[in-house]
Simulated assay, not measured.
Amino acid sequence: MSDDEPAVNISGGTEGGGVAAEFDPATADTRAEVVVDRLGELYWQKTYGGQDAFTCLVRTILSQNTSDKASQPAHDALIDRYGGPETDLAASLAAAEQSELAETISSAGLYNRKSEILVATAEWVLEEFGSAGAFDEFVTEGAPAEVRETLLSVRGVGPKTADCVLLFAGGRGGVFPVDTHVHRIYRRMGIAPADADHEDVRAVLEREVPTAKCGFGHTATIQFGREYCTARKPACLEDPEACPMADICEQVGVYPETGEVIDPAEAPEAAESDT
């Protein structure tokens, strides 16, 4: 574990209730699984599930379009003001004054929009399920496809948010949420098509990565994206051997000889393949 890695992670840590996966790149059946297995050797393992579903949904909405460094204080401030061991967070947020909530979560960015979405989402949970506890039961026990479809019907909840709730609250295997890091990295590696959208990348990864490894693959890919395969200055740009995936990466959109880095969809190779 590096010094930057938290002792307690958003999956619920060792209390999360998941099953630890084995990581052996030599036995992987697909290139995507090789990548996840190497990440398993590089980073700490996690278990999944165990989070309260509505709290997880709130946390993920706060994280949209911002960093964990910015959204975590907003989440902590929200819980301090509106949460508590005996408090139904959905009921508390549904009754919140939006301007007060916006001020509380201001560190997360887009706080006016997010406060509006959080109040509306809390009202939806109460209307549809009656309480945050009943919503949690639906997420953990309902059919995954139904839970995902239901979450996606809520304003402000996109595929990544829905999948994070399924993974971190529901503890569902085979769920590989796709954020900007995941979307960039697997297209850059050539595992997903260069012009694939987020849902296309998710389909590839959930097909080619074993069920038990998808959750870890998501979180470890994010860590890899922060430390090695960044958007503008990937490690391979200056030193091809600096990246642990160098031998299996196609470097789509990365050109060490010129120092240029572009989105994979804009790479000449991608343009030529479409003609």
Rank of each mutant, 00 (worst) to 15 (best):
P234I: 11
E116C: 06
G84R: 01
E208P: 10
V36L: 10
S106M: 15
V154I: 10
V119I: 09
C236G: 14
L89E: 00
D3M: 09
K213I: 00
L237E: 01
T230S: 11
G190W: 07
Q64R: 01
E146C: 00
C164P: 04
G133S: 11
G130D: 08
D136R: 02
K114E: 07
R31E: 07
E141T: 13
K69Q: 04
A192G: 13
E206M: 07
A90W: 04
D197P: 01
L39Q: 03
V182H: 15
L42S: 15
A246Y: 15
V165A: 03
Q64M: 03
A91V: 10
R148T: 14
A271H: 12
L42K: 14
R226S: 05
R226T: 09
I248A: 04
N9I: 09
Q223Y: 14
A134K: 03
G217R: 04
C229N: 08
A53P: 04
H198V: 08
P144I: 00
L152I: 01
T211K: 12
K114S: 13
P144R: 08
N112Y: 12
S92Q: 06
G171W: 10
K114M: 13
F135G: 03
A271G: 15
V34M: 06
I117Q: 09
D4Q: 04
F138I: 08
Y186N: 00
A212E: 15
G253P: 06
R188W: 05
Y186F: 07
G142Q: 07
I79Y: 10
D68A: 11
E149T: 12
E149S: 13
E266K: 14
E123Y: 01
P234D: 15
A74M: 09
D179Q: 08
E123C: 00
T27I: 03
V125W: 05
A108R: 04
G49M: 05
A26F: 14
A21K: 07
F168L: 09
T14W: 07
A120L: 12
L89G: 03
D68I: 13
Y255R: 03
F135T: 06
G50E: 12
G171C: 00
T219H: 14
G158S: 05
A94N: 10
E199K: 05
D200I: 02
R59E: 10
D263K: 04
R81W: 09
V36K: 03
E269K: 15
R155I: 00
S153K: 00
P234N: 15
I61Q: 05
T275A: 15
N65K: 09
W44K: 11
Y186S: 00
L152D: 05
T275E: 12
V252N: 13
A32V: 07
D24T: 11
V261H: 07
A235S: 05
L89D: 03
A203I: 08
L152Y: 05
T66M: 04
H218Y: 05
D4S: 06
E123R: 01
V36Q: 02
G16L: 04
A28P: 03
E22Y: 02
P268Y: 11
K233V: 06
D239C: 10
P210S: 15
Q64H: 04
I117R: 15
Q98L: 14
L151Y: 11
A122Q: 01
D52W: 03
